[in-house]
Structures are given as structure tokens and as C-alpha cells.
């Protein structure tokens, strides 16, 4: 509880500094709105439903693309680790594309898919897929061969060895890759939403964009808070349990 107290004091302090700066009129109120006006905007957006619907749109895009990226990336990573020819081809391609900032996919996605959900999906998948492939491949290659040998003496073969030994043994790497894939996907989706309007749904990125167009700084800052909260929550909900699991089992320090 002491920890929670310190955290509360820290953030309350930040808000206070912010409020004091606004009261001292250090900057124009158009550029730096007070915490209260940001709060008011968030309250209104929450009550009239714009915030909720934008969150649903964004999170749905993210979840779909991310899930697809994982579902495809994981087996592909296993395959590149298993077959040298796939490593030399697909693996090399993944390595190259992973190094490409995933925002770079946005123009291409727009040309290919137009201003559709498809473009958004594509961008998120490209953000996720390559890092998951690389991490899985890397994880499998780092599994001590002794595990597979031990499993073989106990009668494990083929697919059983892959699913019950190699995959769990590579888990620390894979979770790392999932986390990185998530970060890439999240960033590139935001870039895409800010960059293009898609009529089938207004996401958080659009709200951010319109905040700028309307010179509504409280909206820009308010949405940034929402994005920040989603990022934190995703970390706590999606990855913390995995990391706790790994920590407990492997005894690795966080």
C-alpha cells in the first residue's frame, strides 16, 4: 500500500505542477489547456459515446491484426527454425522487413487496399508478423539441444517434441517477440489512423487528428492520455501474466 501511495503522490504532483503552470499563464491556454479542460473533454467524449466507439474501432483493428500476425508468425518461425531452406529465404526476408519501420507500410497499404479496413489490418499484421517470426526462430535456435535429446530418450518424436519441448523451451524468446510485435503494431496503427481517414470507423487516431484540425488541444492531450492508458493496460493484461509465469518457472530476473 505504501507503494501505491507513492505512485499517487507522484502523479498528483505532476497534475499540480501542470495546473500551477496554467494558472501562471506561462503559455497560451490554446497550447496548454488546464487539466480540468482536458478532464472535461474526456468526460464529455465518454458520456456522448465518441470515446467508446473510437476505442472499440481501434482495439478491434489491433486485436484482429495482432492475433492474425501471431497465428501466422508463430508456425512460420517454427518452420524457418526447422528447415534451413526456409531460414535462408523466408527468414532473411523477415529479418529485412522487421528492420523496416512499420509505418512505412502505410502508403503501400493505401495503394493496395484503398481507404478500407483492409489497409489497417495489413499495416497491423506487417507490424506484428516479422518480429514474431524472428523471435520464434531465434528462440527455437537457442533451445539447448539436450532438451530434445532427453525427450527423444523418453519416447518423444516429431510433432510431440516440437509442441511439448521446443515450443515451451523457446517461450521466453517468443514472449519477447510478441511484446515487440505488439509495440510495432500499436505504433503503426496509430500512424495509419492519423494519416488516413477510413469511413468504416473512426479510431482514436482520427480523434487525435481532428483535435489538431480543430485546434482543440484538450482533445489532443485527452486522447493521448487514453492511448497511454491502453498501452499500459495491454502490458499489464497481455504480457505481465506471461512474464510472471516465465519468472516463476525459469527463475529469471525481470
Amino acid at each position: 500500500m505504501k507503494r501505491v501511495g507513492k505512485v499517487v503522490i507522484f502523479f498528483a504532483g505532476l497534475l499540480l505542477v501542470w495546473q500551477v503552470a496554467v494558472l501562471l499563464k506561462l503559455w497560451s491556454p490554446v497550447l496548454v489547456p488546464s487539466p480540468f479542460s482536458v478532464g472535461r473533454y474526456l468526460f464529455e467524449a465518454a458520456t456522448d459515446g465518441t470515446l467508446a466507439s473510437a476505442m472499440v474501432v481501434t482495439i478491434k483493428r489491433l486485436a484482429l491484426g495482432y492475433a492474425f500476425g501471431l497465428l501466422v508468425g508463430l508456425p512460420l518461425g517454427l518452420l524457418t527454425a526447422r528447415f534451413q531452406i526456409l531460414e535462408d529465404t523466408l527468414g532473411l526476408m523477415a529479418l529485412g522487413l522487421q528492420a523496416l519501420p512499420s509505418v512505412c507500410w502505410v502508403p503501400l497499404a493505401l495503394l493496395w487496399f484503398g481507404q478500407t479496413e483492409g489497409a489497417m489490418f495489413f499495416v497491423v499484421v506487417m507490424g506484428t508478423l516479422w518480429s514474431v517470426i524472428i523471435a520464434t526462430d531465434n528462440g527455437v535456435r537457442n533451445v539447448p539441444p539436450i532438451y530434445a535429446r532427453a525427450a527423444r530418450t523418453m519416447g518423444s518424436t516429431g510433432l510431440h517434441t516440437w509442441l511439448r519441448v521446443i515450443l515451451p523451451a523457446a517461450l521466453p524468446f517468443i514472449v519477447g517477440g510478441m511484446k515487440q510485435g505488439w509495440a510495432f503494431a500499436w505504433r503503426s496503427l496509430m500512424a495509419a489512423e492519423i494519416y488516413v481517414t477510413i469511413l468504416s470507423g473512426f479510431g482514436l487516431g482520427h480523434l487525435l487528428h481532428y483535435g489538431r484540425e480543430l485546434n482543440a488541444m484538450e482533445q489532443v492531450i485527452g486522447i493521448m492520455f487514453v492511448l497511454l492508458a491502453i498501452g499500459l493496460l495491454a502490458d499489464k493484461i497481455l504480457f505481465s501474466p506471461w512474464e510472471r509465469f516465465l519468472h516463476r518457472r525459469w527463475g529469471t530476473a525481470r
Partner: peptide, 18 residues
């Protein structure tokens, strides 16, 4: 091939940490 009639123990325990 390996068989369950012959089990092996290694220098490092080769236990599965997961």
C-alpha cells in the same frame, strides 16, 4: 533408435524448466 527400455541421465540434469 532411442527406446524406453534404455533411459539416459545426462551430466546437466536436462530437466524441463517449464
Amino acid at each position: 533408435a532411442p527406446g524406453r527400455d534404455r533411459m539416459m541421465m545426462f551430466q546437466e540434469s536436462a530437466l524441463f524448466p517449464w
